[in-house]
Design a protein around this nucleic acid. Structure first.
Length: 188
DNA sequence: TAGGCCATCTGGTCCT
DNA sequence: AGGACCAGATGGCCTA
């Protein structure tokens, strides 16, 4: 059962489609002084929801506690600000999607017609990083005492070993290694 | 038709 | 003060 049946949902009210019964400037909003204490209030079908954020409290209020309704000018001015804000948010999401696309292209996966979803992309990327980490640790196994299995837990030890190696041999190895990794990345 | 995924709108909060 | 960030709500599209 999906809770978003189109017949069930009331239409949304937007700035460009104001609800006729309410004067915009007198409308109550969650967290306004008039709504103090009603953190979970929800206006069904309207454009605002009560803040249901709880938990860490990081986003609760600012200095002074109670949230204040930001003071805007006329409804026309608010409308303009809203549209500008929407545009910025759209651009931000487009940039985020571009980053997702770049990540899709960076991780190896079975090519299909269907593109990876965002959650699939993140999961695959995580697994890919883990695999690479394992490979690197395996390759660095010689650095560890005999019998010790390379693992993420040994990362600090490996780093220490590597830094010691750098002190002895200089940075040339690191440069060569990075160059090699870079060339591999460009080839793939 | 239900459910997954996504784009967009929106308002609260944080940051500069 | 204004923009960035975030998360909830909503509606559209697609697929099994």
């Amino acid at each position: 059962m999906k809770s978003k049946g189109k017949a069930v949902k009331a239409s949304r009210r937007t700035w460009s489609d104001p609800e006729p019964d309410l004067e915009p400037d007198t409308e109550l909003e969650p967290g306004s002084s008039e709504q103090e204490g009603s953190e979970a209030s929800v206006r069904i079908g309207g454009s605002w929801r009560g803040s249901l954020r709880g938990g860490d409290g990081k986003r609760q209020g600012g200095v002074g506690g109670g949230r204040r309704r930001r003071q805007y000018g006329s409804s026309k001015e608010r409308s303009v600000r809203r549209l500008e804000s929407n545009e910025r948010e759209r651009q931000r999401m487009h940039k985020l999607n571009n980053a997702f696309q770049a990540l899709r292209e960076a991780i190896p996966h079975v090519k299909t017609d269907k593109k990876l979803s965002k959650i699939e992309t993140l999961t695959l990327a995580k697994n890919y990083i883990k695999s690479l980490t394992t490979i690197i640790l395996d390759m660095s196994g010689a650095c560890l005492p005999s019998g010790e299995v390379p693992s993420e837990a040994n990362a600090a030890k490996l780093l220490q070993c590597y830094q010691q190696h750098l002190e002895e041999d200089g940075e040339e190895d690191l440069t060569q290694y990075l160059t090699h990794v870079h060339s591999l990345g460009q080839r793939s």
